[in-house]
């Protein structure tokens, strides 16, 4: 079976250099990262610590009352191991105060609200600390749209956005993310018992192999099916990618003038830097 080539040693040095370069050229030397206790944020934080120094990283833990206590203890494990600065901000009161007004809200609305609440807190602390918000979304999530727009998907720079989940695992192990975090089942922990793979309906290792061939290697639908992927699986994943394209773009702007932002007003983000 096709493995996704990873080369963890080279990957680590490229990403450390990426974080250092892209942060420092903005004129700051610190980042703020939300620590969920999961493998993505743990890896992001540890790579940043290597790039900028442990005292230049603020890991913020943002538990809700129903969050699994394990998540918090795993996040604390990362703080201990990496020596970064940390802060716990419990979001229960503000979330509950809001939903008192809308008590019928379902899990999805509550989950999205929590993700966005956390985002506002990270950005607030990035302003307080003169830092950038470090992203933690991986390529699998970005392609499947498995994240909250303007929530966990929001960041200034993201070292993991071109790594599939299975690559994140391999790199996390190499970089020394605590084993208990690397080996546990991935979960957004927005409600009790939630797991990514349960919610998505397939495993990361299956979907990563498919996405790698489909996106990176440009295999056609027929070629993927010939490779042994079930038709329904290929179509489901294709549809997920198409339907979540909006999460990977700026909002749609009505074109009126000669030069419209993001259409024919084109500049690099690193403009002048």
């Amino acid at each position: 079976m096709n493995q996704i080539p990873t080369n963890v040693g080279l990957l680590r040095s490229i990403l450390v250099s990426f974080i250092r370069n892209e942060v420092q050229k903005v004129g700051v030397d610190r980042v703020v990262v939300g620590l969920s206790g999961g493998v993505d944020s743990s890896l992001s934080a540890m790579l940043a610590a290597e790039a900028l120094g442990q005292s230049h990283i603020l890991g913020v833990m943002l538990p809700y009352v129903s969050s699994s206590p394990e998540s918090l203890s795993h996040a604390e494990l990362v703080v201990q191991k990496s020596g970064i600065e940390s802060l716990i901000v419990d979001i229960t009161r503000q979330i509950d105060a809001y939903f008192e007004q809308f008590p019928v809200a379902d899990q999805r609305r509550r989950g999205n609200k929590m993700a966005r609440e956390r985002m506002t807190i990270l950005y607030d602390h990035s302003a307080r600390w003169n830092a950038l918000v470090l992203g933690t979304s991986n390529k699998t999530e970005l392609l499947l749209g498995y994240g909250t727009l303007y929530g966990d998907m929001a960041s200034a720079i993201n070292p993991l956005g071109d790594l599939y989940k299975t690559q994140v695992w391999a790199l996390a192990e190499f970089v020394g993310v605590p084993e208990v975090i690397v080996s546990k089942k991935p979960s957004a922990d927005l409600w009790a018992g939630q797991t990514d793979e349960g919610e998505l309906g397939f495993s990361y290792s299956e979907v990563d192999r498919l996405l790698y061939l489909m996106v990176d290697e440009r295999y056609s639908r027929e070629e993927l099916i010939a490779k042994g992927f079930p038709e329904g699986f290929v179509d489901d994943v294709t549809l997920r990618i198409m339907n979540s394209q909006f999460k990977r773009r700026l909002p749609v702007i009505a074109k009126i003038s000669q030069r419209t932002v993001d259409r024919d007003f084109r500049y690099a983000r690193d403009w002048g830097k």
Binding site: P5, T6, N7, L10, L11, I14
Partner: peptide, 12 residues
């Protein structure tokens, strides 16, 4: 630009 990784190599 760098792109593409293969196991066991010192460069992309």
């Amino acid at each position: 630009p760098l792109r593409g990784l293969t196991e066991g190599r010192v460069q992309d």
